[in-house]
Amino acid sequence: MRPFVRGLIGLGVLLLVWDGVVRLGLVAADNLPPPAEVGARLVDLLGQEEFLRDVVATVLAWLIAVAVAVAIAVPAGLILGTIPSVRTATRMLIEFLRPIPPVALIPLTMIVVGSGPDAKIFLAVYASIWPILFNIIYALDDIDPLLLDTARSFGHRRARVLATVALPHVAPFAFTGLRLSAAIALIVTVSTEYLAASELGVGAFIITVSNSPNSMDDVLAGALVIGVLGYLVNEVLERAGRRMFRWSDTTRAEALT
């Protein structure tokens, strides 16, 4: 519980600084409303059906994007990590595609798939494939050869060794990739809603309200919703990961405390 309390203290300090900056007049209250005002606005918004529909639209698009990314990246990672010839053949292509920022693909996406939910799902998938894919490939590179020898020495054939040794070894790394991907997918989903003139979604809400004067409380309330969503998902995944992979080096130290 102590780390949680400490985290709250950090959050409290941020809110105090924010409040202080506004009170001291360092920033005009119209441009940066104090936290209490934004909080009140948020409570207000959460009672409006229209806003809730935006939140649901974002969450749905995001969930679908993460699911599709997993469905593509996991098999692709396993194939690339175990068949060197496929990996060398695709290396250039992947290293070319990976650094392209998804927002740079928004115009192309809008022309090809329109500006509906497909567009933001497509771009979020594109951006969130990489962490899962690369974590799996690197984890496969990293398997201790002695573990493979052990499995082989008990008469396991190659396919069985893959299933009984490679998969469980890779799982915690793939899961870490999923956690990173979930955060990226949320960012890209909301950015696309904002930039691609979506009809629904928290990003669409933010760009709509920002066109009217003195609406910074709305904008920040929208941002707050995204922040809380991201925090909750990371928290849930982290806890789930710690439970599932108690044996793993990456989570063991935390599990023992």
Partner: peptide
């Protein structure tokens, strides 16, 4: 290939036991 009725014990137990089992 590896005979069916053979078993090996390696020096490095920490690397030869499956940590997830």
């Amino acid at each position: 290939g590896v005979p069916a009725d053979l078993a090996v014990v390696f020096q490095d137990y920490s690397r030869s036991l499956f940590p997830w089992l």
